[in-house]
Structure formats: C-alpha cells, structure tokens
Design a protein around this nucleic acid. Sequence first.
DNA 1: ATAATGTCTTTTATCGTGAAAAAACAGTTT
DNA 2: AAACTGTTTTTTCACGATAAAAGACATTAT
Lengths: 300, 300
Amino acid sequence: MSKSNNVYKDAYNRGLRLLDETKSLPSEPELGALLGVSRTTIRTILARMEETGLITWNKRSKTVLRVPRPDDFFPEEETDTLSQIIERSFMRRLLAGGAEPGMQINELELAREIGVGTTSVREFLIRFSRFGLIEKRRNSHWVLKGFTRAFALELTEIREMFELRSAAAFAALPEDSPVWADLDLLEDEHRLLAREIATRFNEFSELDERFHRLIHRASHNRFIVDFYDVIAMIFHYHYQWNKAQERERNEVAVAEHLAYIAALKSRDPGKVDAACRKHLKSARHTLLTSIPEGQQPQRA
Amino acid sequence: MSKSNNVYKDAYNRGLRLLDETKSLPSEPELGALLGVSRTTIRTILARMEETGLITWNKRSKTVLRVPRPDDFFPEEETDTLSQIIERSFMRRLLAGGAEPGMQINELELAREIGVGTTSVREFLIRFSRFGLIEKRRNSHWVLKGFTRAFALELTEIREMFELRSAAAFAALPEDSPVWADLDLLEDEHRLLAREIATRFNEFSELDERFHRLIHRASHNRFIVDFYDVIAMIFHYHYQWNKAQERERNEVAVAEHLAYIAALKSRDPGKVDAACRKHLKSARHTLLTSIPEGQQPQRA
DNA sequence: ATAATGTCTTTTATCGTGAAAAAACAGTTT
DNA sequence: AAACTGTTTTTTCACGATAAAAGACATTAT
C-alpha cells in the first residue's frame, strides 16, 4: 500500500469549493499556493476534474463546466493523514477507560489493531511522547503514565506560568502592533458567540484555542508557543469525552475571555494579571473536576 | 544489516569489568538486572566469555578463569546506539559552521552521509525537534532554525522561570526528605572539585548537570524535569565546541553552586532566590557571549 | 522577459522484512 | 516451592523498496 494519496484527496475536496465561486481557475502555481500543495498534486487534481466533467482543461484555460455535486467529493475519512488516524485511535483507547497508568504500550499490537505499519506507530509515539503521557523504556516498550490528576496539575502549573507571562508581554506591546487588530476581531467573534451561545456553544473550543494562541505568541518564545500544543491536545480530546455542562462551562469562559480582552486593551498590568488569573483558575477547576478520581499512578 | 548488536557489545564490555572483582558470576537474571539487559543478551555474553576462555560456564556455575585483557573489549565505537551516532553527526554539522538558519534539512542526504537508513534519521529528527532547533514543513523538508542568539534567550528565559520555581520548592521540602542527603553529597563533590579545579575543571559539566537535575526534580513537574533535557543537550554540545576560558568559567560556577547550596540549606526563600538568580545570570551571560554574533534568522 | 506549462528527478511517507533483544513459557535443580 | 536454566515466541529496531508528493529543469506561450 506504501502511501495513501490523502494529500491529493484533501486538496481535491478543497479545490472543489473553488468551483462555486469562479468561472475559470487560476494558474497551476497559484492553485498550489492556494491549496498548500505542489504543482504535481494540482495537476493530478485538474486531471480528475476534467475526467469527471467539472472543467475543461487545456494548458492555461481551465473553464468551469458545472458546480460540484456532493458525490464529487472524496469521503471525509479518506482525507485524513495517517498520523491523525493513529492519534485518534490511540486517544480513544486512552480515554475509553481501562487504560491504567503503568500499563505497557505495544507498538506491534497497536499497528495491527489500527491496520498500519509499525514505523508509523513508532513515529507517532515519539511525537506524542512530548505531551508527557507516555514514556519509553530503552530498548523496550512504552509505558503509559496516564491522564491522571497529577498530569492535569503539572500541566496547568506550567500553563499558568506561561500564560501570565505572555499576557503581560501582550499588554506591553506597542499601540501599532498588528496584534491589537487581531484582538479586536477575536473580541467581535466572542460577542457574537456570547449572543448565540445557546445554539453555538460547541464552537467555543476552536475560538478558545485561537484566542490563547494569540496571547502566547506575544511571549516571542518558541517553548511557550509550542507548549500550547500540549494544552490544545488535552482540551481537544478530553472535552470530546466529557460533555457535562458544556454549555454552561463555555458560557462562563466566553464571559471571562471578554473580561480578559478588556483588561488587555486597558494595558494595565494589574488588571491583566487579575483577569488572566481568574480565567486560568476556572479553567483549571473545570479540567480537574472532569478527571475521574481514584486513578493512581503505579509504582515504577 | 538490519540491526546492530550494540546492546550486547556494550553490556559485554561492562560485564568484563565484573570479572575483575569476583571468582564466579551470579545467576543470569541477576546479571541481567545488573547490566540492564534481558537474559537473552546475558546468555549471548556468557557464551562469548566462555568461547574466549574468560570463564567456564555450565548451568549455574560460571567460574572466572582469567582477568580480561584490553583486547577482550569491543571497540568503543561499536557500542554506540544508532541514535547517538546520528545525533553526534548531526550536531557536528550544526555547530561546525555553515549551518545557516533557514537552511533545509534533507533526510535522505543525511542518511546517506551518515550511512544509515532513512527511518532512523526521521525518528531522530522527530525526537530532536522538541529542542526547538528544527521545524517540520508538512509533507516536505525540515527547516533549521539555528542555534541563534534568539534561541539562547528563549531557552534561558524558560530555564530561569523553571529553576527559580524548583529552587523555591526545594527549599520548602521537609527536613526528612532524602534530597537533603543528596545535596550534602553533591556539596562534598563540589568542595573536592573546587580544591582541584586546576586539573579537574573538565569534570564540572557532569557535576553541573547532576546538581541542576536534583533541583528541578523538586518541582515534581514532568514538564520542568523534561525541559532540563533541552538545556543539558545544548550545554553538552555547545561547550564541546567552545572551550574558551573553560577553567575560569567552571571555577566561578563551582563557587556559585556552593553559595546556592548554602542558600538552599538555609531554607530561607529570599536567600535561595538571590543565590539562584545570581548563578542563572552568569550562566546566561556565559552562554550568550559564546554565540557567534551576526547569525540572523531568515524570513520564513 | 516573465510566467506559465510539460517533463523528469528527488525526496518523503509508508510498508514488509529480518536480525537483535526482550519476554514468556517449560523444564530442572537445589 | 522458589529460583534457576533451557527453549520458544514476541517485540523492537533498522533497512531497502515503492508509491505519493515535492521540487527542478526544459520548453512554450503571452
């Protein structure tokens, strides 16, 4: 099987959406830049679009013949990266319960179960290890440290340290920095979401991530920025499995964000610190209450 | 070639040193625990020891016949892990100059140059990426961010944040914690080294690492503990290439450590903070002055 | 002359394979 | 029966091979 063509399929799907808007497509390099793939992939896409009668293609002219139908798209699941597939599979096992701290992780078994090669699983585990949930025994298996209360506490400790520092750096940014415009846009989105929170509460987590990443970026420190990946990963998966009081939680968080944004705009260090602390405190509380108690890490 | 037997060779060499001390070797499981390898490897080792006339081996009896000679040992370079080999090779290129920020890293070329498979190089790069010196372009090459002044500043910023916190946590540890005994031992080693600094100054970096790791461990936070890997890596390689005023630097650092240790033992938060800050300041200064100026990161 | 397209080359992503090493199981010895 | 040794099975580590995707070079169109 060697390598799936998910890059092509995903780009193709995204390319279909362009057909709604124009009567003719731009040049190959331009399309490549637009979809974030190489010309090689673009040409494969164009070839198929021609084949399925979506466009005519002759050198520079790429005329749209018809609007894409739902069945023109490749199925969603065929557009996923292998590492996304492995990650999802792995996280499901991890969060589905029965994953006790101290448990061994078997590369071969994982690979067989997911139906992929061991190399991909190995690479995934190496990449994943920086999240601090697993650990490698030299020349031997991986050990699951587990999504425990201790993990959550250690994670939030760093998060709070980093975010307080980033928020302070943010507030100290000069007036003419482009981040203030970004912040204004995010503020608008927050207000909109707040108004329609009853129906759109599940859109919060995406907004949450963008907001916090913007703040962390103000630190101008790659270690701080990168650390947000850990937080994002945890939030992403954990809240997929813990929907309790999601609406209420998010409603509170949106309000806290708005207060936080106001504090940042005031550029008053004291206010920023207070608003940031308040939000982080409730975020920690939310995370901690959602962790099943009693899971205690095993002795090594 | 598939897989080198470096685990066996390294364990064999370490096993040879046991022959100096005893007239007969312990049981297979015991040897395995001692050398940190499986029984399978132990049996391979014993088989060779018998073959080369070092011991007689019959079931439980493993009698030492003679003391090992220098040529009984496997050559040092055959005992290295593949990832150690790749790491060394990669760091040499990175520090040897000509490695401009923004430069592309080619897996295939690296693999060919080092004479290993691409898989091993890929895995190394993934593992190495957490140090923040390289970055992956999705579906494409890696980009070297480079060992720049910015890197050093970002690194030290986090280091200072983490170490101040760890030092405070350390000082707050109860009297009966075993760390105080560890600290006493380290203090003795520091005093010894201080006395013979003129000749043994190059032994400092190993002691330095042990000292700081002990402190970081007091944080009880895996992210803080793990971050010391980044620092250790940088120090390890960077100082191999920058020996300027090594003796003076280390002499100063030993003195600062002793003051730092005294502060910890006083358990006075103010003193700890001051001593820690002083040492971190000079550590940062040392690192910064050793970075060649003018290396500016490229635009993305 | 610039920027596109057409073609060819190189690199990355992934798998299957096989040896090294670990782990599990079975049989012995004290 | 506890702990060892002998044997077999499983897993990890590393490679070469191959399709997907990127990138480089040559050619053509505006």
